[in-house]
Design a protein around this nucleic acid. Sequence first.
DNA 1: ATACAATATCAATAAGTATTGATATAATAA
DNA 2: TTATTATATCAATACTTATTGATATTGTAT
Lengths: 105, 105
Amino acid sequence: MKPKCCNNKKSLAEISQVAEFLKIISEENRLKILCLLKENEMCVCDIWQYLGLAQNLTSHHLKVLKDFELVSSRQEGLKVIYSINKNAVKNYSKLLNKFLNSYGE
Amino acid sequence: MKPKCCNNKKSLAEISQVAEFLKIISEENRLKILCLLKENEMCVCDIWQYLGLAQNLTSHHLKVLKDFELVSSRQEGLKVIYSINKNAVKNYSKLLNKFLNSYGE
DNA sequence: ATACAATATCAATAAGTATTGATATAATAA
DNA sequence: TTATTATATCAATACTTATTGATATTGTAT
């Protein structure tokens, strides 16, 4: 019985895309940041202070998340407010679940 | 407004656990293996030949998956047959979705 | 017993990435 | 203007992990 996955360009591209997404969110600090932003938008200083991270490290992780378009930001005075990109996250989780769940159902 | 996540031992432990799971499955070859095993159980030689991976590399990734109890194996003659542990995968994805999805719903 | 096939292990290296320290940029206020 | 606060960037380091090559183990057959 031939497998149905990993056998064509589209399938491989999707797996690659999901793996990239997973790499981004598998970093514990980034997962925490997403978890926070899921509840409310927050400025950088609130995030790093709440999580007990270094300021520059927090900026770095936010950049990774933003480059992957999982979060957005806007300037508000001195502060930069980050918010989660719900649609992007939802789409990636859908794609992920396509691979992990729905065992024949 | 105080965040509801990352603020207690249980929440932090869950995030840590999810991140560990994501680290395991964010490796592209392991994701492919899971994808294959989701369809059918397979022996090691079928997996590495199908995916075009080195035999020892495939064994290594299978060990990582097995150590994390995402797959199981049984001996069958010369061959070792691997199968996915559906419940484990399902439980981890549930936990993951708890963090990524259900925006207030 | 020997030979062969399938799988696993181990050491070494390569590759990627998180973290840190120092510094730069941007916005605001005095 | 200068000073201050918030954020971003950059280079260097530390850490983790994927990959490779060689070898060992295990099961089966002759």
